[in-house]
Design a protein around this nucleic acid. Structure first.
Length: 289
DNA sequence: AGCCAGGCACCGC
DNA sequence: GCGGTGCATGGC
């Protein structure tokens, strides 16, 4: 159906485009049709078409796939064994994984992840996506245009650091505008900010991110889980709070207790458990408040 | 029309 | 430390 040049990836396991992109971890994709997605990251755009266990990837090369996208999709990891471990003796996870078997934790760019989750507070996913699209259209480079579809990359730090609170308000960020400016200024003013984050223990990295005005525990943990490879984190938002209380604990449990429960139950794999549970539970209950 | 959305800061105790 | 409240915006 699409005649352009592409590369072919074979023998994929535990991989489903819809599950990966619609589980709420990433915001810069466009669903062309079932099993056919455009993805914008790393200043590039690719189109992925999945059939069973194989994938056609357009607008990339074998080298680029190995260098960027393989790790982005976390393909070096055996999700079969992760799923077996976290769902052992756990009927809730067994059920969530049965429904959302193809989720993978994407290794996304830290800065874009942080900005995305600062914007995410008190918003739903479609609105987060539209704001990120606005920011990219206005301040990112046009990276693809075939007359039918066009895509803009997420702006670089050097561009972002020139934006003011008023700019972000104009981009519909509302009360988050000063948060975004504070985050960007701190990162721009500290050389290798995220390199440092990568090198320190998770708890310290979380504290450092929380120095940013407008970054609390949840945004810090989402940044670290989805953007810095800290797959042991179990970010507690309203849904995760609700589902953990509902399935495992009891109502009105303190968030710190929820996090320590997850750490004790799933250890280094808590982030995977969080994502399967979050996606399945939200799907099942959305609209019910 | 009013309520809600992958929270957070700020304010009273 | 904790619980309550306001916050910009858009979709329903």
């Amino acid at each position: 159906m699409v005649k352009d040049k592409h590369i072919q990836i074979e023998a994929l396991n535990d991989f489903n485009l819809q599950h990966i992109f619609e589980c709420g971890q990433s915001f810069r994709y466009l669903k062309e049709s079932q099993n056919d997605y455009w993805i914008v990251a790393f200043g590039k755009v690719i189109r992925l078409i999945q059939e069973e266990n194989s994938l056609k990837v357009y607008h990339t090369t074998e080298e680029e796939w190995k260098k960027l996208w393989f790790d982005y999709f976390d393909l070096g990891r055996d999700y079969g064994s992760i799923k077996a471990t976290i769902s052992k003796d756990d009927s809730h996870l067994k059920e969530a994984i049965k429904q959302k078997w193809g989720v993978r934790l994407l290794n996304q760019e830290p800065l874009e992840t942080l900005i995305s989750f600062i914007i995410s507070q008190n918003k739903n996913i479609p609105h987060i996506m539209s704001i990120l699209e606005l920011i990219s259209k206005e301040y990112g480079d046009l990276i693809f245009d075939d007359g039918n579809r066009s895509f803009y990359c997420f702006p670089s730090l050097s561009v972002l650091k020139t934006l003011t609170i008023e700019d972000f308000r104009r981009l519909k960020c509302g009360f988050r505008a000063p948060y975004l400016v504070d985050a960007i200024q701190r990162i721009a003013n500290e050389p290798d900010y995220f390199k440092q984050i990568q090198q320190i223990p998770t708890g310290e990295a979380k504290q450092k991110l929380m120095e940013i005005h407008g970054v609390g525990e949840k945004v810090a943990e989402c940044t670290l889980l989805f953007g810095c490879g800290r797959h042991e984190l179990y970010p507690v938002d309203v849904w995760v709070k609700r589902l953990t209380e509902d399935l495992y604990l009891q109502k009105d449990t303190n968030n710190a207790v929820i996090r320590s429960f997850a750490k004790q139950k799933w250890g280094e794999l808590a982030g995977y458990a969080q994502q399967y549970l979050f996606y399945a539970y939200r799907d099942r209950n959305k609209g019910k408040g």
